[in-house]
Simulated assay, not measured.
Amino acid sequence: MADDHAIVRAGFRALIEQEADLEIVAECGGIPEARIAVQMAHPDVLVLDLSLPGGGLALVPEMREALPGMAILVLSMHDREPWISEALRRGVTGYVTKGAASDELVAALRAVAAGQPYLSSDLQQPAAPRRA
């Protein structure tokens, strides 16, 4: 889990610890730590915040090359374009917004770990027109 907010990491950890088949092998608050954690732990899934200082989105191709079999699940506050399409273009396996329900995050983890793409339900709905 790579997110620069300690409270998000703590909440994510509390959620995952309730699931017998899921385990957090490392958590980090920045890009340098994420690089090291991926090299050391070889996780099945990297949960990545796109807003990490230095740009989490820029980390995606590097992580794809370093560990091609690892799924990358974005957990982000960004729920609009161009964030979503750019993340998918760079090779993420799934994308969940931080506004999604906790059971949806667990479902997303299981899906991407099994090699299936995943978009949170709020992203699958057509975007509401914005008022000027």
Rank of each mutant, 00 (worst) to 15 (best):
Ala132Glu: 07
Ala101Trp: 13
Tyr118Ile: 08
Val25Lys: 03
Leu67Asp: 04
Arg130Val: 15
Asp44Leu: 11
Ser102Ala: 15
Arg131Pro: 14
Arg90Ile: 07
Leu123Val: 13
Gly29Phe: 01
Val8Ile: 14
Ala10Cys: 11
Ala132Met: 13
Gln125Cys: 11
His5Asp: 10
Leu88Thr: 04
Cys28Pro: 03
Leu57Phe: 12
Ala20Asn: 13
Ala111Cys: 08
Ala6Gly: 07
Gly115Phe: 12
Ile72Arg: 00
Asp4Arg: 00
Ala66Tyr: 08
Pro61Gln: 09
Gly54Arg: 00
Phe12Thr: 03
Pro43Lys: 00
Met77Phe: 12
Glu81Lys: 06
Val74Thr: 07
Glu23Ile: 12
Gly99Glu: 14
Pro61Ala: 15
Ala20Ile: 14
Arg13Cys: 11
Glu65Trp: 05
Gln125Val: 15
Ser51His: 11
Gln39Thr: 15
Leu48Asp: 09
Leu48Ile: 08
Ala100Thr: 02
Lys98Arg: 03
Met40Gly: 07
Leu59Ala: 06
Leu22His: 01
Asp122Met: 13
Met70Ile: 04
Val112Gly: 03
Leu67Lys: 13
His5Ile: 14
Leu105Cys: 03
Cys28Ser: 13
Ser120Leu: 12
Pro82Tyr: 00
Arg110Gln: 08
Tyr95Ala: 01
Ile7Thr: 14
Arg35Leu: 09
Gly56Tyr: 01
Glu23Met: 14
Ile36Cys: 08
Leu22Thr: 09
Ala132Pro: 15
Val25Leu: 09
Val74Gln: 01
Leu67Ser: 05
Glu62Pro: 01
Ser85Trp: 00
Arg90Gln: 14
Glu62Trp: 06
Val45Pro: 00
Gly69Tyr: 02
Ala58Asp: 14
Gly11Glu: 05
Gly91Thr: 02
Leu15Asn: 02
Pro68Arg: 00
Val106Cys: 04
Ala107Arg: 12
Val8Cys: 03
Met63Pro: 05
Arg80Tyr: 12
